[in-house]
Design a protein around this nucleic acid. Structure first.
Length: 1008
RNA sequence: GGGCGGUUAGCUCAGUGGUAGAGCACUACAUUGACAUUGUAGGGGUCACAAGUUCGAACCUUGUACCGCCCACCA
């Protein structure tokens, strides 16, 4: 006997263990069957399951379980990512918490040992959380991006690309993260709008030169003419002035034409050491912006870098790896040093030059870049090199103006209008590290790059040729746009945790790239001393190889043969660039085949208010809380704990307590999975509410109770049914509905319409099976006709079993539990539900149109009677007599055949065929038949009159509209004939009904 | 600046040219033998706005407004 309700907490872990130990998650190995494979997007080994993971893995599990039931040879390949920066951060933090020696103190080898230790002990807990969700990965094949196999793959790929010239080392301006003290790729930089300032400074011309500065308006009238001994520039980063290599103006800018080629002085530092830089022309400066003149600091700005490269302008690195002003060297720059080096053949921005020049004056050395900025500004202003403007210049927003309050007006008016430094308030786009959240500094350093442009071509082609398909299709454009404008991929990181770059340097700086040190030694010869490159690779480099490195590449394994290319990749749009595009590039280049055929890009999971879930905002919902339940107290604690801004804690606490005073129930993994699937429409974000999960839990309870009903009525598990041998129209109807639902779900899953699949099942189970089929079956199951009873038991049992199969990919636990309980012992006899044949048919579906029409008529009639009863306030419990007036033979037959059903579900005392409505009866219509309910004793005649009046009025409106349309010659002439026919039919149906209702209405008049 | 998407019931969203829908919320009724984690019935919409195409537009076209997100950017 089934319990009152399903207990997910007890059943889910038990069932999961049973599946796993029975080997259900492994590929069937049936090579005659089609192969189906998915590689998991490897979660960070530091990861903790969040709602995005829950969605991502639920969708994968649905597909994998679906395809397993379709008897394919299915592999879901799991594993984790070593997550270079994130993991190194976690361990470093732990060291400092435990007051152990720091990373640098203990050295590389000892530190890496610590990281491995951490990984073994506390890494990968997310995988256990995925198990809790029901993820049916083949855990026996679990991989890690830093395991031996992946290492081997990474080294091999690196060497190959190096030998092909697709990986190279170069000094380039890269994004430098001063916190991690490492280069990062441009994808790892977030540009954020922040309030900033733009300072205007004067660079005096060398040797006291002067020129006439003329400004003109649009019409060419002179608006300003003055003698100047300086050129004005505008900058948001004054601290980089020390590294300026030139001042650039646009070639067409007449204002500065006369001084192009002359030199000006950077107005910072001790006067005797100030450096002269040339005034040059370049297309880059916009004459309309600022002063039209731009200082060119090639080593600290990406735009300037391009200008400097074009113009051969030297680039000076001012900062160290912490983005502090360089503290080395005492002397100030000397042009002769540069000239000397240049004559020796060095490039203008060669580090030897930069080091030799010692650009940073003593006063600024060692300062943080922001402190340095403040100092530079103060010093320049003090020396009179700031551009001065009247205090009321609209570009200047003084603090006083901002602060102005009532009553201060007079004071403000009294303020003397003098000259002030021109400092504009300006929102600027500032680059931040996506993990460190500190301001990124462009830095000129030696790094390793992948020639992504060369690899991008085939990756673009594969998608345009349809070898790989994006679902939904619109993401293709995002992919195309990015690959079409792809930059070299900086793959070296100045970290320790990761794949060490397989390159060794000889004492003369020769480069030996090889998979192992031994091979590098072979290349170098015995007497060369070798030093391995200190850097590690970007984590995404190994992730890009995931679809084949996990299958055993570079060995030619059977798994590789069977499962590559993989079938489907499921991931979020936020890693299309990071991961999807790079897997495409590497997969095609190394395997000659795309890594996956379909890429399903799922939505972002938002909170119930449409906000991104974020720990620092305090609006997260932990998937495990929904599965296992959480108290209100704990929920508050969790949310407040992760807050970025502790001042918001009271508000978050208040909001959370208000919204979820008692926390959440343990809804179970099934409920969460079903909810996510139901909400996973294509092209829209998912707003997850706890209420929605509760709704899914209720659905699961509904299913449970349907099974209890079957159990009580001894509906067995016939295994299969021959629909043609089934006689009763109710049973024939539900078998048709079942086939239709199965086909719909199958099609939806094939097309990645998870929401339609789950939504279709919800409707079918609740609104068709439970609301109608089970209700219609009750009189048959409790009736005297043994043949009908037996047939109904079989059909009902069969339908419910098929429902369990259809629901299994979505709700694996409750369905597996019910499957066994419906026929105890069947698990031992024929195995788990999980591996049963999927019911959705691709061939011909069973459908009895006549039965369907008949049952729909029954349902319509019952609904109509219920509606009238409810409208007129007939007590729900009252059984009333009904007569059918003017019934056709077919109607009479149906009414007679299903009399028990009608009596029960419409709560009728009797059902007769009559020629005329009984006196005082209330009528409604169904097609040609009037339904006459003798309910005069319960109702208010006036109310009934007004009900009928309203019905007739509504109908007249429809009739009017249809008549208007049909009398429109244009419509009749141009609309398709079947549409015209349809409208005609509707009109005549409405007319018939209106007539009958009117007749009923006038009978009421007779009563008065 | 470039790109993508959105605007339909109180809320969340379906709806590819011909009858405006679902879930939740709301209202009323119901403890009838699977289920109150329930059942039955009901109220509720100028489909953002404007113009156009069409016999006919939530749907197609153009424009406008507002809201998201992504990419690139003026020193």
């Amino acid at each position: 006997m089934l319990d009152q309700r399903f207990d997910p907490a007890e059943a889910e872990t038990r069932l999961y263990k049973a599946w796993e130990s029975a080997g259900c998650f492994k590929p069937s190995g049936d090579t005659s069957a089609a192969a189906y494979s998915i590689v998991i997007p490897p979660p960070n080994v530091t990861g903790v399951l969040h709602m995005g993971h829950a969605l991502n893995n639920t969708l994968q599990d649905i597909l994998v379980r679906f395809e397993r039931m379709r008897q394919k040879n299915v592999l879901w390949q799991p594993g984790t990512d070593h997550a270079g920066i994130a993991t190194q951060m976690v361990v470093e933090r732990q060291l400092s918490q435990n007051q152990e020696p720091s990373r640098t103190e203990m050295g590389r080898e000892a530190f890496l040992e610590k990281v491995w230790e951490w990984k073994e002990e506390s890494g990968g807990q997310i995988l256990n959380q995925l198990k809790r969700l029901g993820a049916s990965c083949d855990w026996s094949r679990e991989r890690f991006t830093l395991d031996d196999g992946c290492n081997k793959a990474v080294n091999k790929v690196f060497v190959q690309l190096f030998n092909e010239g697709l990986i190279y080392r170069a000094k380039r301006l890269v994004n430098w993260d001063p916190q991690f003290q490492s280069a990062i790729s441009n994808l790892e930089v977030e540009n954020v709008e922040v309030p900033g300032h733009m300072w205007h400074f004067k660079y005096p011309l060398a040797d006291g030169a002067t020129y006439t500065y003329v400004e003109k308006d649009e019409d060419g009238n002179v608006t300003l003419e003055e003698e100047r001994d300086y050129i004005a520039i505008a900058t948001t980063r004054p601290e980089t002035m020390l590294g300026d290599g030139a001042v650039a103006v646009h070639p067409s800018d007449e204002r500065y034409a006369s001084i192009v080629g002359k030199f000006c002085e950077i107005p910072v530092g001790p006067k005797e050491h100030r450096r002269l830089i040339p005034i040059i022309t370049d297309q880059y400066p916009d004459p309309e912006f600022g002063s039209g003149a731009v200082k060119i600091t090639g080593a600290h700005d990406f735009n300037d870098y391009e200008v400097a490269k074009r113009g051969g302008i030297p680039m000076f690195s001012l900062m160290d790896e912490k983005a502090h002003m360089r503290s080395d060297g005492a002397a100030y720059a000397d042009e002769s040093a540069r000239a000397q080096k240049m004559s020796e053949g060095a490039e203008a921005w060669d580090e030897t030059i930069v080091a030799a020049m010692n650009l940073v004056p003593e006063a600024y050395r060692g300062l943080d870049r922001f402190e340095a900025r403040a100092r530079v500004i103060a010093d320049i202003t003090e020396e009179g090199f700031a551009v001065m403007v009247p205090a009321d210049d609209p570009r200047v927003q003084t603090k006083k103006k901002k602060k102005k309050k009532k009553g201060d007006d007079e004071a403000a008016a009294d303020e003397p209008v003098g000259l002030v430094p021109l400092v504009e308030n300006k929102t600027i786009q500032q680059p931040f590290g996506d993990r460190s959240k500190v301001v990124i500094e462009p830095m000129l350093t030696d790094q390793w790059f992948v020639d992504a442009e060369t690899l991008a071509g085939p990756a673009l082609e594969a998608v345009s040729e349809g070898k790989t398909r994006f679902v939904p299709d619109n993401w293709r454009k995002t992919y195309d746009n990015w690959l079409n404008d792809i930059q070299p991929w900086c793959i070296s990181r100045q970290l320790w945790w990761g794949h060490r770059i397989p390159v060794w340097y000889g004492s003369e700086g020769e480069i030996f790239c090889a998979e192992t040190e031994a091979e590098a030694r072979d290349l170098a010869g015995a007497d060369v001393s070798l030093m391995q490159d200190e850097d590690v690779l970007d984590t995404w480099f190994s992730s890009a190889l995931w679809p084949f490195s996990t299958l055993g590449w570079p060995e030619k394994t059977t798994e590789l043969e069977t499962f590559y290319p993989t079938s489907t990749l499921i991931t979020g749009f936020d890693i299309i660039f990071f991961w999807v595009a790079r897997m495409m590039m590497q997969g095609i280049h190394l395997m000659d085949e795309v890594p996956f055929k379909d890429v399903y890009i799922h939505a972002l999971v938002l909170d119930e208010n449409g906000k991104k879930m974020s720990k620092s905002v305090g609006n997260t919902i932990d998937p495990l809380d929904l599965i296992q339940g959480v108290s209100g107290e704990d929920l508050v604690k969790k949310r407040v704990h992760g807050l970025k801004d502790p001042e918001k804690a009271p508000q978050i606490e208040k909001d959370t307590r208000k919204a979820y005073p008692d926390g959440f129930d343990a809804f179970g993994a099934d409920a969460l999975r079903f909810t996510l699937a139901r909400l996973a429409g294509q092209g829209r974000n998912i707003r997850l509410s706890v209420q929605a999960v509760e709704g899914s839990r209720n659905f699961s309870t509904k299913l449970w109770n349907a099974m209890r009903f079957a159990e009580m009525n001894e509906c067995g598990a016939p295994g299969s049914i021959d629909p043609d041998a089934v006689n009763n129209p109710v049973n024939r109807w539900i078998l048709g509905e079942l086939d239709a639902a199965g086909a719909e779900v199958t099609k939806a899953l094939e097309e990645f319409r998870f929401n339609d699949a789950a939504g279709g099942l919800y409707k079918f189970v609740w609104n068709i099976v439970c609301d109608w089929y089970l209700e219609l079956s009750k009189p048959m199951l409790s009736g005297d006709d043994e043949a009908v009873k037996a047939e109904t038991r079989d059909v009902c049992g069969y339908v419910l079993d098929e429902v369990l199969k259809l629901l299994h990919p979505f709700m694996p636990f409750v369905t597996e539990e019910l499957w066994e309980s419906r026929a105890p012992g069947r698990k031992e006899a024929e195995g788990f539900l999980m591996l049963k044949q999927w019911p959705g048919k691709s061939g011909e579906l069973f459908h009895d149109a006549k039965a369907a029409e008949e049952i729909e008529w029954i349902i319509g009639l019952i609904s109509e009677v219920r509606s009238v009863r409810s409208d007129l306030g007939v007590p729900a419990g009252a059984k009333v007599p009904m007569a059918l007036i003017g019934a056709s033979d077919e109607t009479a037959r149906r009414a007679n055949l299903h009399k028990d059903i009608l009596l029960r579900l419409a709560r009728l005392a009797e059902l007769d065929l009559k020629d005329q409505a009984p006196k005082g009866a209330v009528s409604t219509v169904m097609g040609e038949t009037s339904l006459s309910l003798s309910i005069a004793e319960f109702i208010d005649i006036a109310e009934e009159k007004s009900r009928l009046d309203k019905r007739v009025e509504d109908m007249q409106k429809e009739i009017g509209g249809l008549e208007g349309r049909l009398s429109n010659q244009q419509f009749v002439a141009k609309a398709p004939p079947e549409v015209v026919e349809e409208q005609k039919k509707r009109l005549s149906d409405f007319k018939v009904s209106a007539e009958k209702l009117q007749a009923a209405r006038s009978r009421l008049d007779d009563l008065d």
